[in-house]
Amino acid sequence: MKRWMRRVLGAAGLLPVAAPSLVWAAGGKASQLVVVADTRVIQNAALKYFADLYNTNIWLFAVWAVVLTAVYGCFLGLLMDFIMARTGLDLKSRKIVEH
């Protein structure tokens, strides 16, 4: 049973690889999609900056996106540890939990 389950799991791994070729066989015209952020309707200065960066310099936008996400993730981690340490709960005995 378990072995069978793993086989199914493996097949699912192949699916994303197989899917496009099936679609390719079905045909369809290929045209790149380009998105332009509509900076006309954005009021917030920071959002406007990033939307503008998206339109003009996508590389810098990508670097910002990764850095901000990482930094914000770290910040939240520290903040939460700080808060949880003050709840008075014993958190040392909890198991390691990821994803």
């Binding site: 509509d38 900076t39 503008d52 003009t56 910002w64 990764v66 990482a70």
Partner: peptide
């Protein structure tokens, strides 16, 4: 990374958008 972000000149001359 943060430094390179700042060093890479914020050369994004604000583009305008029309629709």
């Amino acid at each position: 990374f943060a430094l390179s972000c700042l060093v890479v000149p914020a050369a994004s001359q604000a583009a305008e958008v029309a629709q």
